[in-house]
């Protein structure tokens, strides 16, 4: 049971042993009918575009310009361009920093600390702070971007806390600020996952540890954290995926700047396509994103399967 609590994304195990069906194993007309809407919409508006994007990634299509109407297949030209594109490498690096720093580590750690500390907190404080964390997570991305732009502006509270009204947090530490904003918006979800998992830590083990004279730090390191390990892995992966897709936050806060400091791949792909009008190259960058998310997804599924 406890395993199920920390393993999202794996198909729910059937309650009874072995697959149970109402019919014999053959495709029925009813199934076709029920599957038809999804079977048409998903390929037409999701899978086909992804495949079409693969093709467009090898063309010189432009949004506006010489090749907006008459574009052609350009073979490896876009790939060669990408491999010698310094902005692309910088974007990869920034993406890695953002996704790992803010997603895998930042949000997970923040959620973990929240969940653990909440256990010992005064009820009123507990209600208020967990409520705030969840509220932060429910806000739409555009609102999150707005409140963080305000907070990190030169006249905003972060600059005031740095006791330097001339400080300019969003521009001086752009990646740090967008990472904080992203973690701020995701920690509520991680907290919920960890709170749930913490409830399943066997109390007798902790009591036994206390009786044996283990300090609270020792109990944390030896009992609680090892018990939370699967949740930590799950949370880290989920946060990574969610952070990777978090285009809106960065685009609205910094549009990838200043000096490309926050130019993560999804933002770079959008800017190439819709600011510099190179739709073909933009599609290629999108394909790179698909490859990465497929890799991440595989790790996710692999961990889910292997834990069964």
């Amino acid at each position: 049971m406890t395993e199920a609590t920390v393993m999202p994304l794996k198909p729910a195990p059937s309650r009874r042993s072995g697959p149970r069906r109402l019919d014999r194993p053959r495709l029925k007309l009813a199934s076709l009918f029920l599957l038809a809407p999804a079977g048409i919409l998903l390929p037409a508006l999701f899978i086909l575009p992804v495949c079409y994007a693969i093709y467009l990634g090898f063309t010189n299509l432009q949004l506006v310009g010489l090749h907006s109407v008459h574009y052609r297949f350009t073979g490896w030209a876009n790939i060669a361009f990408m491999l010698s594109d310094a902005s692309f490498y910088q974007s990869l690096w920034v993406t890695a920093l953002f996704v790992v720093g803010s997603g895998a580590v930042g949000s997970t750690l923040l959620g973990l600390v929240l969940a653990i500390a909440l256990q010992q907190a005064m009820p009123a404080l507990r209600m208020a702070v967990s409520g705030l964390a969840i509220l932060a997570w429910t806000l739409p991305p555009t609102t999150i971007a707005l409140v963080w732009i305000a907070s990190a502006s030169p006249s905003g509270p972060i600059a005031a806390m740095m006791a330097d009204m001339k400080a300019d947090p969003l521009y001086d530490h752009a990646l740090l600020i967008v990472s904080a904003a992203n973690a701020w918006s995701l920690a509520g979800l991680a907290m919920i996952m960890f709170s749930a998992a913490l409830r399943n830590v066997p109390k007798d083990m902790i009591e036994a540890g206390t009786l044996e004279g283990a300090s609270s730090v020792q109990r944390m390191m030896r009992i609680t954290l090892p018990f939370l390990k699967p949740t930590i892995v799950t949370s880290a992966l989920l946060m990574t995926l969610l952070t990777f897709g978090n285009f809106t936050l960065i685009y609205l806060m910094t549009a990838g700047g200043p000096d490309n400091a926050t130019n993560i791949l999804p933002v770079y792909s959008y800017l190439e396509g819709f600011k510099f009008f190179n739709l073909g190259y933009s599609a290629l960058l999108g394909n790179i994103i698909v490859i990465f998310s497929a890799l991440l997804g595989s790790v996710f599924v692999f961990l889910g399967q292997s834990r069964r």
Binding site: P154, K166, D172, A255, G257, P258
Partner: peptide, 9 residues
């Protein structure tokens, strides 16, 4: 002037 001023959209 600070970057937030001169780099601002």
């Amino acid at each position: 002037a600070p970057s937030a001023q001169i780099l601002d959209p």
